[in-house]
Amino acid sequence: MRKVRSVAGDSVNLLLYRETGRSDDAAEEALWKLNPSLAEHRPVLPAGVWIVLPELDAQPAAIKPLSAWD
């Protein structure tokens, strides 16, 4: 796992997408499990917060689209 520092104005989703290329629910859940204290910083992170990034696959699992006939 690698650590990164936030930039002023980062949100968790923005930082996650910038560093991993993903911001889906599974990626965000993994990040929150590794960094439970991030919630103390509110929606917008201050500059300089260290964040541990989860080990993620390059692409999220494919989701089968639903139709009205399923």
Rank of each mutant, 00 (worst) to 15 (best):
Y17T: 07
R5E: 06
D70H: 14
A39M: 09
Q59P: 02
D10C: 05
L66W: 13
V49T: 02
A39R: 13
I51S: 02
G9N: 11
S23C: 14
S37R: 15
V44M: 12
Q59K: 11
A58N: 14
P36H: 02
P36F: 01
V4S: 05
P60R: 05
L15N: 03
S67C: 07
D24R: 06
A68N: 10
L45W: 00
T20V: 00
P54M: 08
D70F: 11
N13Y: 04
L53C: 13
A68W: 09
D25W: 00
D24W: 06
S23F: 10
L15R: 04
I63G: 13
D24P: 04
V52L: 04
L16E: 03
V49W: 02
A30D: 11
I51V: 12
S6E: 05
K64W: 09
A58I: 10
Y17K: 13
W32Q: 14
G48N: 11
W69P: 09
P65S: 08
A39L: 10
L45D: 00
V12M: 09
L31Q: 01
H41T: 12
L66A: 14
A61F: 02
W50E: 15
E40S: 15
P65A: 07
E28C: 03
N13W: 07
Q59I: 02
S37L: 15
P60H: 05
L14C: 05
L14Q: 08
A47D: 07
M1E: 00
A39P: 03
A30P: 01
K33Q: 12
V7R: 01
V44C: 12
P65H: 08
L53V: 12
V49P: 02
V52S: 03
E55V: 05
K33G: 08
N35S: 07
V49M: 03
V44D: 09
G9H: 13
A68F: 00
Y17H: 11
R18K: 12
E19P: 06
K33M: 11
R22E: 13
L56G: 01
A61N: 09
A30W: 10
L31Y: 00
A62H: 09
W69L: 14
